[in-house]
Design a protein around this nucleic acid. Sequence first.
RNA 1: GGGCGCUUAGCUCAGCCUGGACAGAGUGCUUGGCUUCGGACCAAGCUGUCGCGGGUUCAAAUCCUGCAGCGCCCA
Length: 595
Amino acid sequence: MFRQFRTAVADALDAAVSAAGYEVDDLGIEEPPADVDATLASSVAFPLASAAGAPPPQVAAEIAAEIDPASVDYLASVQTRGPYVNFHTDESYVTDTVTAAGADDWGQLPSRGESVVVEHTSANPTGPVHVGRARNPIVGDAISNALSYAGYDVDRHYYVNDAGRQMAVFAWAYERFDESELPAPERDKPDYDLVRYYRAGNAFLDPDDDTWPATEAEIEAAEAEIEALMKGFEGVAGGDEDAYERVTEVVDTVLDGMRQSLDRLGVSFDEFVRETRFIRDGSTDELVDRLESLDEAVYEEEAWQLDLSEFGIDKNFVFRRSNGTTLYTTRDAAHHEWKFDNYDRAVTVIGEDHKLTFDQLDLTLQLLGNDTDQLTQVFYSWVNLASGEGMSTREGTGVDLDELLDEAVERARAEVEARLDDRLRDDELTPADVDRIARQVGTGAVRFDIVAKQPAKAITFEWDRALDFEAQSAPYVQYVHARCCGIESEAAEAAVDPASDLDPERLDTPEERALVREIARFPAVIETAAEDLEPHRVAAYVRQFAETFNAFYRECPVLSAEPERASARLTLVVAARNTVANALDVLGVDAPASM
RNA sequence: GGGCGCUUAGCUCAGCCUGGACAGAGUGCUUGGCUUCGGACCAAGCUGUCGCGGGUUCAAAUCCUGCAGCGCCCA
């Protein structure tokens, strides 16, 4: 309703400005501060004042007088306050908002008929997911959800780097070492199992690391084997099926473990897209041919490179080595052309350390004739560990996502159990409920904490802060959802039904009106979050929303109100629950029915 | 040396893209509120050179510019 109202007001204001004999580029439409009881406002009188030769308040009044509220959808009245023109909504705005928000798909915008692929996480399958990387799936999944709510047809991709040196080392190490030589895995999970080989392999190859001493000759022999593997799956001379199979076994196993961890976060993918796919199908070779024929292509220091200096990138982009192998970014370019062929838009969520690489990729794709306007990247900063904090049992390697989630769920469980005794509500929580709540609250707190912040800002990870269950966190919002559910189930028992034909005059207190206003904004918040790829806006909104709901909850008892009012309020509660549930859904945070 | 990003209350952060109503939350500290639909709650109070300087504008946390600190990347 808010979006319709905003459009209607913009049209009416535009016409009013013309009718008053003015011209302006920007109508200055904005949401007024909280203490102003209007749904929309305009500061258009300021820029017009000098042309009018009159003070802004006078211009504002002049423009306001040109608008006939009766001819504008949802507009009750236009009032000025000093230089501002304020727009107040009518009763049908309340009715239509609460009715629309009663539908389960509230916030879901109509289909745009456009497809978008969101690539995120894409961590190299070398071992367990690190907490520093956890920002990627959390932000990426929320962006995907926001786009989906905004009407895009969304696919979520994990790009698997299965063709680099790292994977060759891994495949070699997996065959080179015997399980009996390795320490016990830290967890009974495939990624923890396999990472032991990878670590042992790297220690073996590093002459300075005496965990696995090796002679120079041994290292040389190993390097030769690794080189052969790389050439095999990097497609030199047509590639090598055997090398591909050897690396795939390792990749699949580790990926399976990583996928389990991401599942716990509630993050899943439509497709795991393998880098080797673009070697095997010939698209990388074909792309290299096109790159070599570009004016910017040079052959220097025994490698084919692209000179991008005229585009402001001083570093040459090497796309084929002298030995015939291609580079990661070359294959990624083929990958992106594949995306362009199959989707209308592509979004990539990626660490800020890949900025240069990404700029090179973007330019290269342009030089190859692609329209890179359809490609957007979202960068996030690394998550730092505070000194003395967060060191894993595995020394010096930081915190794994699994450890973070274990700790989060454990702390949530302690919280649930501590509160069991003084619950006002006399429902019985079974042990299964406690499990569920601990999981929902624990993982929800982690996701909310991370998604609520702008990705560009560096975060320092601290246990206590990340797992703070106080206000401005997931549980605060989840609690509102549980409250709504509680009211609804009580209402059902008391045979109070939602109003079939809502009378907006039954919702006339300031708290009810404020809640309706917040509910109405939800689709517009989704739209903005999706357009700007900024899911943290949804987090800010839902937190504010929870506060508005709690004010309503305090002032407006539902079940004890007289019957007509009780029904109207119950309808509002249903609308509020849908709003909170769907906002949390975008953020990837569970909305518990009880907690 | 070059490029990009960040800097707002003691602490953690919104607001900046698209300039406009007294700069907002949480946390912390002080005080008050459960015979009531769920107290993981609510209300009141305290806390700011919006990193620093300059510019544009009727109006700058917001736009431009120089500098500093921090982070990331490149040679």
